[in-house]
Simulated scan of single mutants.
Amino acid sequence: MPVSSEAVMAPVRRVAVVGLGGTIAMTATPGGGVVPALSAEQLVAAVPGLAEIGVDVEVVDFRRVPGASLTFDDLSALADEVRDRCAAGFDGIVVTQGTDTIEETSYYLDVRHAVPQPVVVTGAMRNPTLAGADGPGNLLAAILTAADPTARGLGCLVVFADGIHAARRVRKTHTTSTSTFRSPDGGPLGYLVEGRPQIVNRPADRAVLPDIHSRADVRVGVVTATLGDDGTLLQTVAHRLDGLVVAAFGVGHVPATWVPPLEQIADRIPVVLCSRTGAGPVLVATYAFPGSERDLLSRGLVRAGFLDPLKARILLHGLLAADADSKTIAAAFAAAGGHGTPDDWPYPTTATGQGTHRAQP
């Protein structure tokens, strides 16, 4: 059968698969249990049908650690690796890692990824020793998404169980389910359909931090509001931090006992107000009692908008690492949290994509 000139001229898509470890790369130990042991090359070799999709895959055995053990130093080095691979002409990057921290690492990459090539993060809930292991299917779907032109410009994505999620929306919602990753605010961006990514929900903008050498010694903590908490833990940890994220009740409420210490802490370091519920925004003006969102924002706390506590911590860490002042931090959260305008983002946009627009929730 003759090959068409169109097929001959079609360029081969190139995707780099960067392995960090996690459940997708785990094998059994003699003493029981599983640990990260498989290389990125072994993961790719175990994917059925990969050779038939017409994508040139190159592997990078970057780390072999559980997702829970990844550090900001690891992620900084990973962001550099992604940047170098994109500069070398790859059409997309796939990162395989443990699911424990995918919702954080993906957003870390997203706010540092200023070029059009997609970065796709995936993993597995069922390790390779189990019947029905989901790693090979997730990896194939991630490679197909990273190689497809429809994913360009979407930043960092999480592909899992044939769903395509924006890094800034996605959350891990179940400890064991293979469909654990969901996007409560806005839904998934699309799905894999017969081996092709179908984007049905394309955000208009996204936020990218400037590409600068940043501080590595920043500490940002998360404290969750709970029934009857008198604020002792809050006061104990705050003096050790450079920034604080409060995972508040509902639309942004805390116990009245928290108000004085939070006001004092906000005078010293940035304090970002989020909701612990898992979906929906922090409000600004509905409630007025002590400890309400209106009260706390008037005392200097920063509204996170649609960003959940884990995403807010990643963004605040990045801003502080870049030596952002309080005005810059407030503007950045207005844009990235979805309650500002594109012009609120405090960093300039350039022809190379450094800088940003607002991230729609």
Rank of each mutant, 00 (worst) to 15 (best):
S326V: 15
V119G: 00
E81N: 02
G280L: 00
S5T: 13
R196W: 15
I143S: 01
S326R: 14
E103L: 11
P203E: 00
G137L: 15
T96K: 05
A40E: 11
G250N: 15
D73W: 12
A256W: 09
L109Y: 11
A238F: 00
E41D: 11
Q198C: 10
D185A: 13
M125Y: 01
G250Q: 03
S76L: 12
P11T: 06
A336Y: 07
L319E: 00
T96N: 10
L139H: 04
L20R: 12
V271L: 10
P290A: 12
G19A: 11
V245G: 08
T226A: 08
Q360E: 01
V3M: 13
G340L: 02
T328P: 06
L140A: 03
Q117W: 09
S326M: 09
R63A: 02
R126S: 13
P66C: 14
T277H: 09
K311R: 15
A87C: 10
D91I: 08
R83S: 14
A88Q: 05
A79V: 15
E103A: 12
A25F: 11
R182L: 13
D91K: 10
L283E: 02
V35S: 04
H357R: 13
D110A: 00
A133R: 09
D162S: 09
L70A: 05
G98P: 04
S106A: 05
D73C: 06
F62E: 00
T175W: 14
G67D: 01
P48N: 14
S69R: 11
R168M: 14
L262F: 06
R14I: 06
P309E: 15
V259H: 04
E263A: 04
D230A: 15
V95S: 07
H357W: 14
G190N: 01
A216H: 15
P260W: 00
T23E: 09
D343V: 10
A46V: 05
E58C: 04
A312N: 03
S76N: 15
